[in-house]
Design a protein around this nucleic acid. Structure first.
Lengths: 215, 215
DNA sequence: CGTCATTCTGACCGGATGGTCAAACTCCCG
DNA sequence: CGGGAGTTTGACCATCCGGTCAGAATGACG
């Protein structure tokens, strides 16, 4: 509506509509199953118009993925702050659970992309993500050395966190089916979030007293 | 080779070859991305011959899925035996980790199917799986009442187990990339398996002494 | 060896889909 | 009001892909 300068408001408006529609369709159908015709229809535009803004389906897909990774990086920041391990981990897991709840489509696109062998985001995995794992892994190792955590390979812990939190987005259909056919309501999800945090954090936190630790 | 009676050996032989090729291709490309031509080529047969044994791509896909679910049910049996919770859970998680290691393709096809909204296995989810969750959920609840487990919603526990174990199959590419570009070797996987079991079981087992349980 | 069922396969077809294009339309600015 | 940049769109095209089919090859059996 308002008049913008450089990128005409009509342009960004339509681009955003297309990106939103594309995110939904890619999440539902996967890259191969998605059609530009359906994306265009859901964005309320003729197909030719979509191709005016995004030359190819692959290019559009890449733009969508970029948005997804940006959101992921935001949640990843919850791992900052030097606080007690239980607090940092709990906050991080909570942030990832919230992301799975609020933007499940992004998680699904990411999962689908990895399943295909990450043809479009291999670079992200090898640079940004690898660096992230290395730096936070060092933090985890420090906690272990300080006796605050059980001795675990940091990556194993990250994988468990990612797997569990993203499961609530990627497998939401299965979860809903096992919930009587209805998606978890806010209360049920909040409770699941609490329990996931409790189990994971409780699972890696060093036992309160070493002398009674089992095994 | 040998002469069989009812199903000619040539028939079952080719069917098996096609099913194996199909499992690989469906896992790599998803249902939409897979082509009958590639499946046939990988099975060493002309495309028309594939369609002689399996009328449609969807029919072939269903057959592959059936095999996947059968394998899943086998692993699910590890939840039997009335033994201490830690043992039963550990054995079950271990079985699922082994399955993820040995038949990652099956897990990927399942994941891809759920992502699409389970168009082909909705029935399985609503019957077999729902029953399984209900019966084992009852077991978990009994453990909780007996004070052996922390009070958790059984489904939350199952989701965490499924998510984590299947992650090692579904996200193997990401794991490999974060492992320096190489898949986990047997030793690394065995160690991961041990830690996953320790964290999950340790996370739900009731604290050794209630009087020092946090929170 | 003759006959019939099964298996094999190259050639083909129709529909779907990603992408193109030229002609129109809109809007801004001088 | 004139004109050019930016935007819109129906019509169109080439390719890919699932699936068909007729006829040939193969094998089983009396």
């Amino acid at each position: 509506m308002g008049r913008m300068r450089q990128p005409s408001s009509i342009r960004t408006g339509h681009e955003d509509a297309i990106l939103a529609a594309a995110e939904a369709v890619f999440a539902e159908r996967g890259f191969s199953g998605a059609t530009t015709a359906e994306i265009a229809a859901r964005a309320g535009l003729p197909k030719a118009n979509l191709h005016y803004y995004f030359a190819t389906k692959a290019e559009l897909y890449r733009q969508v993925l970029k948005g997804v990774l940006t959101a992921w990086l935001s949640a990843a920041e919850a791992f900052e702050a030097d606080a007690p391990p239980a607090e940092v981990l709990g906050r991080y897991i909570g942030a990832k659970m919230d992301l799975a709840r609020q933007r499940p489509q992004g998680s699904r696109i990411f999962a689908s992309e990895i399943l295909r062998g990450a043809p479009e985001i291999q670079d992200f995995l090898e640079t940004t993500l690898r660096d992230w794992v290395e730096s936070r892994g060092a933090v985890v190792r420090r906690w272990i050395e300080a006796g605050a955590l059980k001795p675990v390979e940091p990556r194993t812990l990250f994988f468990m966190i990612w797997a569990t939190t993203q499961h609530y987005a990627d497998f939401a259909h299965q979860i809903a089916t096992l919930n009587g056919g209805m998606a978890l309501d806010d209360a049920a999800f909040a409770e699941a979030k609490r329990q996931v945090i409790a189990i994971l954090v409780g699972g890696v936190l060093a036992a309160p007293r070493a002398d009674i630790a089992p095994e």
